[in-house]
Amino acid sequence: MPEILEHHSALAHLGLAARAVATRDAGQGVGLAEAPYRAAVNLRGRLDDAGFAAGAEQALGCALPAEVGAVATAGELSALALGPGEWLVVGGSDGPALRARLLAALEGVFASVVEVGQQYATIRIAGPKAAETLQKGCPLDFDAAAFPAGRCAQSLLSKIDVLVWKRSEEPAFEVTVRRSFADYAWRWLHDAAREYGVAILAG
């Protein structure tokens, strides 16, 4: 029986839980939080292959979005279109189960299903100055008109690769980075947000 390892936060050394407050003060422009571990699977295949599209839809409960940057959500699972024929399926806290579910639905189909959840760390940034904070280090346009709710984009944030996802109409973004960049990303965001007043929130 293999030992089941606990998911270890990439930012555990910062002691964020002890520094977290319940809510952001009215005077603070930005709230930062480390999102808890989230299962993620990199899914690749051809959407024009009916077997792939149907299999993925059966496993996810929604059709894969074709347009790069679009996100489809069903229940706790979301599929983020990273590129043509490439998606990041995220949701829940059981990566192996998510992978198994997709593999079962795509049996015999030309596809790639790779569990990548533990490779990433996600930081949530919210508040009226969240977009301005990100704008300091990222060439994407975070204005609500250019980056509406339900969109994601990959870009650079202060030289590191990021996946930014705007989940709702709120001025809030989820910034997903490679795990080894989590410390840098957190410190950069915290520093960039300091002039607006920043609250550390519980994930």
Binding site: V68, G69, G83, P84, P139, L140, Q154, S155, L156
Partner: peptide, 11 residues
């Protein structure tokens, strides 16, 4: 062609 107009930095 997939993501739309982006800064040269990303390429």
């Amino acid at each position: 062609p997939h993501c739309g107009p982006r800064a040269e930095l990303e390429f």
